[in-house]
Nucleic acid binder design. Structure first.
Length: 131
RNA sequence: UAAGCAGACCAAUCUUAUCGUUCUGAACUAGAUUCGGAAAGGAAAGUCUGGACACCAAAGAGUAGUAUAGCGGAUAACACCCGUCCAACGUGAGUUGAGGACCAGUGCAACAGAAAGAAUGUACAGUUAGGCUGUAGUGAAACCAGGUAAACUCUAUACGGUGCAAUGUCAAGUAAACUAGAGUUUGAGAGCUACUCGCUCGAUUCUAAAGGGUAGGCAGAUAGAUUCUAAGAGUAAUUUUAGAACUAGAUAAAUGAUAAGAGUCCGAUGUCAUGUCGGAAACAGGAUCCGGCUUACUGGUCUGCUUUUUUU
RNA sequence: GGGGCAUUAGUUCAGUUGGCUAGAACGUUACGCUGGCAGCGUAAAGGUCAUCGGUUCGAAUCCGAUAUGCUCCA
């Protein structure tokens, strides 16, 4: 397992993102929120992820980029949680809900928790379907 | 020494380790590979301006409209910049200035005042009288062929319009659905423009309502009015010649995280001196590219000058 | 990336070539009519005209800059 985050692993298709927001479901661990959708995509990786920070809460581009970098970093370090658990292709978008900046360490804790909640969520869903 | 004015420049942290991003060169075992190289600013910002570039079927003419406004220079061009005159402010170094024209025309002027435009009054003084002259009083303005043009306007100069979401190209996909109203070879309508003329195309077109498909790739797009150095021209802005350099090209959008050390600044404390402890590091992120303006903003260095006080 | 608009009382808006004290409706507060409520009537409060400059004797109004909000584009 490499701790990489290349173009293939990031969510870059405008079309997929639009579908994701229309059809996807969400899990939330403050200050993060994840929209996810089980669908096919043309990458070799198990999933594609994107991050977003709303312009409403952070007016300056510098602040938004800073938070997105932190979010990408925490995701990159901890994506194995998801990769080990899922067996179908997924796409998801992680949004930042807070109105102030968080430290790297506390943000990482929240990211780990979010990914675990996500894994639990899709496992219970699959279980219910099989029943 | 203190306070201040003007200008120029530097840094916007660095090193090492581990993991990681974008572009790119090479290698081979040919891809979830390995080894290298490059990777944000003085404002990249606001979009206030001037261009380059692209399209609009000659991109034509006129009107309208907009902008600029002492004089001269400089530039690809400009509202910027340089020099200079004048005005206002400041003790001064200096700063600021939309700084043409109310002897072309029209309009406007609250309150006060006799009177605010073709108006001539009151009191006092001068003079023999008529009248004329001066002073007073109101007001921002009545020192008269008055004031006011960031009032219309006039004069001079400049400007065709739209903007890289321009534009070209490849791929995929679809439907000229239907309904209602209006017009049309006696020329409807279209050609992105405020209007007119001219020019070009021209047989089905327009409006309302309601629906279907796409929203991806590549080019444009990074070597240029470029940067640096030297020598000359010019008071200067700027420019000529020679030499050297290559300096981001992303597209849900690339520079980050952790640890250690070093350096800068501030505060406290101590010393003859080196220190010790604690804290801080602003504004802010390319999106076709350049020139300027405006706004935001941390720390420091240097140069020239002014004023006042003290000392030598 | 590039265009176009708006900002006046708590809210929705007027404000006409720059001039007298910036108005209206709704809402708020007080008082009155009622035994009380609703309703009606009377009165009052509430504005740095988004912010900062300039032109002018004088600016909500004219000009410039800034801030905030809305909106359009292939």
């Amino acid at each position: 397992m490499k701790f990489t985050l290349g173009k293939q692993e990031r969510l870059k298709s405008r079309k997929l993102i639009k579908r994701l927001y229309e059809e996807g479901e969400s899990v939330k661990v403050f200050p993060l929120k994840m929209m996810y959708l089980q669908t096919k995509h043309d990458s070799n990786y198990p999933s594609r992820a994107g991050v977003s920070v709303p312009k409403r809460n952070f007016k300056l581009a510098v602040d938004r980029n800073k938070i997105k970098r932190l979010m990408r970093e925490t995701y990159r370090k901890n994506k194995y949680i998801v990769y080990d658990a899922i067996d179908k292709p997924y796409v998801y978008m992680i949004s930042y809900l807070a109105k102030d900046e968080w430290e790297y360490a506390s943000l990482e804790k929240k990211m780990i928790k979010l990914l675990q909640v996500f894994v639990d969520e899709i496992k219970t869903n699959q279980h219910e379907k099989t029943i």
